[in-house]
C-alpha cells in the first residue's frame, strides 16, 4: 500500500471521464431512447385505433349488407305481386272481351234469323194467297180480305 501522486492523476482522469460522459454520451443516448419509446408507444396506440376502426367498419359493412338483402327481398316480393296482378288483369280483360264478342255474335245471329223468318213468312203468305187464288179461281179483293190474309200470315 503506497499512496502516491497517482491518486491525483486518476482523480483528474475520473473527473474528466465523468464530465465527458455527462455532456456528450448520456444526453444524446437518453434522448434517442426516449424518442424511440415515444415512437413505439405512438405506433402501438395507432395500431389499437386502427383495429377498433376496422371492427367498426366491419360492423357497418355487415349492417349495410343486411339492409341491402332485406331491400332486395322486398323488391322481388313487390315484383312478384305486380306480375300476378298484371296477369289477373289481363285474364279479366280477355274474358270480358270474349263475352262482348260472343254477345254481339249471338245478337247478329238472332237478328239474321228473325229477318229470314220474316221473309219466309211473307213468302209463305204470298204462296198461300197464290194457292188460294188458284183454288178459288178468282181474284180475291185484297182490300176486302186483308184481315183474313193477315190472320193467315199470323198463323204461319
Amino acid at each position: 500500500m503506497n499512496l502516491t501522486l497517482t491518486i491525483i492523476g486518476q482523480m483528474i482522469a475520473f473527473a474528466v471521464f465523468v464530465l465527458f460522459c455527462m455532456k456528450y454520451i448520456w444526453p444524446p443516448l437518453m434522448n434517442a431512447i426516449e424518442a424511440r419509446q415515444k415512437k413505439i408507444a405512438d405506433g402501438l396506440s395507432a395500431s389499437d385505433r386502427a383495429e377498433k376502426d376496422l371492427m367498426l367498419a366491419q360492423d357497418k359493412a355487415k349492417d349495410q349488407l343486411k339492409d341491402a338483402k332485406a331491400k332486395a327481398a322486398e323488391i322481388i316480393d313487390q315484383a312478384r305481386k305486380r306480375e300476378a296482378k298484371l296477369i289477373d288483369e289481363a285474364v279479366a280483360k280477355a274474358n270480358a272481351e270474349r263475352d262482348v264478342i260472343l254477345a254481339q255474335a249471338k245478337a247478329e245471329v238472332e237478328a239474321e234469323r228473325n229477318r229470314l223468318r220474316e221473309d219466309l213468312r211473307k213468302q209463305v203468305a204470298a204462296l198461300a194467297i197464290a194457292g188460294a187464288e188458284k183454288i178459288l179461281q178468282r181474284s180475291i179483293d185484297e182490300a176486302a180480305h186483308a184481315d183474313i190474309l193477315e190472320k193467315l200470315v199470323q198463323e204461319l
Binding site: F20, C21, I25, P28, L29, N31, R36
Partner: peptide
Amino acid sequence: FRKAAVKASSDQL
C-alpha cells in the same frame, strides 16, 4: 459510447 451516441443522435428514430 460516444460513437453510439453520435449514431443515436444523428437519426433518433
